[in-house]
């Protein structure tokens, strides 16, 4: 193996290696997704966030508009405080409604934003006031059972 051929092979190896890394970074991962620099911050309080996690999606009309960046517990109001970064291109009215949904039956949970009709838009650092918590399956079921049970009791024999 002479030197030129060796250099050529190693060069080829390193080149396709870097090519593979670029492919993984740009094509496979969300590296090219939402740029975190061009965002503004919103906050929202939820009674129950369910399975919401850091980096969960924020969607409006099904379109990805931002990501959850922080989840804390507000020990004064006993609720969850969720911080999210929204793409600068998208603005939402002040009376926007934030709810936690599940994609599909078993999928990830995400925050859905439903715009209201206010003239003014939410500014950087503003808080979304109207929220709806995650639907807890156990609650739904127990509610359903309770209703059924009370139906049975009130029904005339």
């Amino acid at each position: 193996m002479n030197r030129k051929a060796l250099d050529l092979w190693v060069g080829f190896f390193v080149a396709i290696g870097i090519g593979a890394l670029l492919f993984l970074a740009l094509k496979v991962s969300s590296f090219s997704g939402i740029q975190m620099e061009n965002t503004y911050q919103l906050q929202a309080r939820f009674d129950n966030i369910g399975g919401l996690k850091l980096k969960s999606a924020v969607r409006s009309a099904g379109v990805l508009v931002g990501r959850v960046t922080d989840i804390r517990y507000d020990s004064e109001k006993y609720v969850a405080l969720v911080e999210m970064h929204i793409d600068n291109r998208y603005l939402f009215p002040k009376d926007t409604f934030a709810a936690i949904y599940t994609s599909g039956l078993l999928g990830d949970q995400y925050i859905g934003l439903e715009p209201g009709g206010d003239e003014e838009d939410l500014a950087d650092g503003a808080t979304v006031l109207k929220t709806q918590s995650a639907v807890a399956l156990e609650k739904l079921i127990s509610q359903f059972m309770f209703n059924k049970a009370s139906e049975g009791q009130t029904a005339p024999p």
Binding site: S29, G33, A57
Partner: peptide, 19 residues
């Protein structure tokens, strides 16, 4: 195929940790 991949693969957590 590609967009579901891009939506859930995170560069730092998945690609970088793999490297």
């Amino acid at each position: 195929f590609w967009s579901s991949m891009q939506a859930s693969v995170d560069f730092r957590h998945d690609v970088w940790n793999g490297i």
